[in-house]
Design a protein around this nucleic acid. Structure first.
Length: 292
DNA sequence: CACTTGACCTGTCCGC
DNA sequence: TGCGGACAGGTCAAGT
């Protein structure tokens, strides 16, 4: 499910609710969702408090006062939903209009109780995970974090960096290249399709055939599309919800994603769906011409 | 090495 | 209704 904008939305919500809170109880109902040894989990989580809620690519990282961090990946269907205890508000004032009425539900895999509320890790398809690891050196030591490419929305990220990394994958499709998390962290299927549409590049174009001008358009488009989505609370297709359990509204503004059969908002041609890089791929046949 | 294809899981939708 | 197959926002391991 969640790509960079969705994970960032969840992160921001959790940061607001969890920072400073002490963990009082932890339980997990599916081992692969939280594979650490129980003894370590109890020792390093109980009575520890949450220092911050951070994000790297599509991963959430929560350093704890015990010197260990929770590392979480939502994969396709993961959710992190916080529920304040009775009598404890969300802190912002407004009541939630969450679509998730009762928690835990049948997809709840991990429950973390804190002083003022409970964090539920739900994951229908069980691809996601929660892990507990030593905070010191985490970003360099952890296999997943270590391989990630640059953060696309950071101030220091440059076109030169993007171009060099993309062009290393010269024999693959441009879509496969930008989905590669070692090239740039956080782009997934929705923003790949939306970015390629905005940059007017056919998703199946071989990287070697994408001009520098087009690559520059793509660099800008990916960042703009993801920033817009963050401002709208992300994209909710099926499962995605933020930390309160609410949906995001970006998909209402999507130009091609899940819009096959309807008219292109730019030229009126019919949006097509095909398969590129093993993923469902949406594009406008007129705006995004495949080079012969 | 670069690249592609299945596997990991559950649920839903579509055609017969 | 039921049943089989394809497909779903992501990564890995294993194959060529």
């Amino acid at each position: 499910m969640p790509e960079l904008p969705e994970v960032e939305t969840v992160r921001a919500g959790l940061a607001q609710f969890l920072v400073g809170q002490k963990i009082t109880h932890v339980e997990s109902s599916w081992t692969k969702s939280f594979p650490n040894e129980q003894t370590l989990v109890q020792k390093k989580m109980l009575s520890a408090s949450v220092l911050s809620v951070d994000r790297r690519g599509k991963a959430i990282i929560m350093p704890l006062s015990s010197g260990y961090s929770l590392l979480i990946h939502l994969k396709m269907t993961g959710q992190l939903v916080y529920r304040p205890k009775h009598g404890q508000g969300f802190g912002g004032g407004h009541p939630t209009d969450s679509l998730i009425s009762q928690l835990p539900d049948k997809s709840t895999r991990v429950i973390i109780e804190l002083a003022k509320g409970t964090l539920f890790f739900n994951d229908q398809r069980k691809f996601g995970w929660v892990r507990l690891e030593k905070t010191k050196g985490l970003y360099e030591r952890n296999e997943f974090l270590r391989k990630l490419g640059p953060e696309p929305l950071s101030e220091e990220y440059t076109f030169a960096e993007f171009k060099t990394a993309v062009q290393k994958r010269k024999n693959t499709s441009i879509k496969a290249a930008i989905l590669d998390q070692t090239v740039v962290a956080g782009v997934g299927n929705i923003y790949a399709d939306e970015g390629l549409f905005a940059a007017r590049i056919h998703p199946a174009t071989t990287v070697a055939n994408v001009s520098t001008v087009k690559l520059h358009r793509l660099f800008n488009a990916l960042r703009e599309v993801m920033k817009l989505s963050i401002s709208l609370g992300g994209s909710s297709d099926k499962n995605y919800v933020d930390a309160k359990g609410n949906k995001g509204s970006y998909l209402k503004f999507a130009k091609v994603f899940r819009r096959e059969g309807s008219e292109c908002p730019v030229c009126g041609s019919i949006i097509q769906k095909t398969r590129v890089a093993g993923r469902g791929t949406h594009y406008c046949p007129k705006c995004q011409k495949q080079p012969k």
